[in-house]
Design a protein around this nucleic acid. Structure first.
Lengths: 106, 106
DNA sequence: CACTCACTTTCCAACTCGGCAAGTGATTTC
DNA sequence: GAAATCACTTGCCGAGTTGGAAAGTGAGTG
């Protein structure tokens, strides 16, 4: 088993994306605007991060209509959900496992 | 209560430093070389990250002698330990709490 | 036809990070 | 006692990431 840090997912690790993915993981689907307010970033920033997550195959973007206007909603793909779970596991492993030899204590 | 992401500690969040701090948190004190091997980075990289953690007040550096040679050992300060615990709490909050309003689901 | 919505994209400027190489100070080795 | 080794430390990049501001897009509205 390699060291846990290597199992951290770079795409998910960035604070903003971690929040985005966590929010999406706790719901089935979230509107762009709601997510933007939840995560507290600008449209521009969210749009960019969504692109990153989409390219990674972690998020699916879908457009739907409200009246005549189009809205965007986001949802985690199964891979995204798995990746998130794996990432959280890796964090836990690092945080609480990883017993370290203490020099002069064996 | 502000959103949890704001409570993430930037100093601790970086993967390498997270690993370093986690390792230090699980022990009382670790030698530079042991830490370097545990975290799997170069001397240079570790040295730099230790400087960052020291400036943040999270790590204390002490030199001691082995025979005639000097060795460096690292330990978390109480603030460092607190910061790490707080960071992990914030991660958990984001990861498992944070119920999000789902549009059209109230 | 101008304007608003709901994002998207572009253009930066500011960081951060790691590798490599050189530097330090103390201690050995030949 | 000059050269090499140990145990880090520092400097110098180059690459990659991020976010804000602002312009752009495409559809819909007055």
């Amino acid at each position: 088993m390699s060291h846990p840090r290597s199992r951290l997912d770079d795409v998910i690790h960035a604070p903003v994306r971690f929040s985005i993915v966590a929010a999406l993981a706790s719901a089935t689907e979230i509107e762009f605007r709601v997510l933007r307010d939840t995560v507290e970033i600008t449209d521009s920033a969210l749009s960019k991060q969504i692109t990153v997550l989409e390219k990674a195959g972690y998020v699916r973007v879908s457009k739907f209509s409200v009246g005549r206007r189009t809205r965007t909603s986001l949802l985690l793909t199964p891979e995204g959900r798995t990746a998130f779970e794996q990432h959280v596991r890796a964090l836990r492993e690092i945080a609480s496992g990883e017993t370290v030899r203490i020099p002069g204590t064996e």
